[in-house]
Design a protein around this nucleic acid. Structure first.
Lengths: 189, 189
DNA sequence: AGATGTGAAGCGGTTCACAGCT
DNA sequence: AGCTGTGAACCGCTTCACATCT
């Protein structure tokens, strides 16, 4: 399969595909293209591939519940290993086949499941505390969905997913399209 | 308030704050700082601020349901105006205070609510069709949560939020940390 | 003194364009 | 002839550093 075909399927530029694959030492054959099986093994090796990374979800509100039954996680090698919530009335409940554990159980949960990744799906005001707990329990990779600035120690990898911001960006572009381009005209003027 | 204070609160660099604000013509006073009220009005003006952008959510699975009761949307000026699903058994049901409408109702729904933004929260295989319907109904800004490549006409603004990819990135960094840095050592070697 | 506003440099990533291999 | 591999240009954004203003 050629880099052009791969690029079309992924919706990106062909040169980009070639450059990225060459970084991975997933080489193709000139005049021919790439061997797909080879790509699969090489890419999954680089991505950590074989061993799954179990994840812990902090907060089982609407978003936490949605995430706990999100198929894409399992498929991507990130099975949901545990659910944790601060609300004692939901602790012990069964959600998506898993019993919700108390925050004080977190450390034990991490150890017994070998979890490596934490997802913060709490309200904004509880996000920092949730992240602190995850870090204290030994988690070093955190995905934060709460719309809050969370600070973590340097060795912890934190990624932010802000749903409202995504919409804000769309709204901004739209505003720009309809309006007579207020910013650039002001900058230009 | 100084650019340093603002930057700390937002978790970004101070020079960046100053540069961005100067683009918006939200100027401060040298030696003093920025007038916060002025910043609020100026920023909300640029962001489209005053008039809300109602959104339509396509697909009321777990994720769609979570999104339909996500407070951040309303707070950010993106009230959920309608829910749509292809499954006739959920059409007519009430979710988060809204009645789920059929796909064929989409165009009417967009008109009657004045919606401008669409969210695709369907399974991957239905994402392209959902996007097509939104475009046909006049929506020009789409936020896609389905893990699928979706193509839209040039005038439509499409943003992709791929939850599994976010985890993949975390997992990759983690893999790199623990491992003896396979890629770079191979590149170097 | 203290903070802004902004050229200039730096950086990661993308795209072009074409030499080089099969 | 076709497709890869990659130097070079490009792009948007971030950060530095400092002249400038109150």
């Amino acid at each position: 399969m050629s880099s052009v075909e791969l690029a079309d399927l992924a919706g990106v530029n062909a040169a980009n595909v070639r450059k990225d694959l060459s970084y991975l030492h997933a080489h193709g054959t000139r005049g021919v293209g790439y061997d797909v099986d080879h790509l699969i093994t090489e890419i999954s090796l680089v991505l950590g591939g074989d061993e799954p990374n179990p994840v812990i979800i902090m907060g089982v509100g609407n978003l936490g519940r949605a995430l706990s039954s999100y198929d894409g996680f399992v498929a991507g090698g990130f099975p949901v290993a545990g659910l944790v919530d601060a609300d004692p009335t939901v602790v012990g409940r069964r959600i998506a086949g898993k019993v919700v554990r108390a925050v004080d159980d977190l450390e034990a949960l991490v150890t017994e499941t070998g979890s490596t990744v934490g997802i913060v799906a709490t309200p904004a005001h509880a996000a920092q505390e949730a992240a602190n707990r995850l870090v204290a329990a030994g988690i070093r990779s955190i995905l934060n969905f709460a719309p809050a600035v969370v600070v973590v120690p340097g060795q912890v990898d934190l990624r932010q997913v802000d749903l409202a911001t995504e919409l804000q960006i769309l709204g901004y572009h739209q505003h720009r399209r309809s309006d007579a381009d207020p910013i650039m005209s002001r900058v230009a003027g």
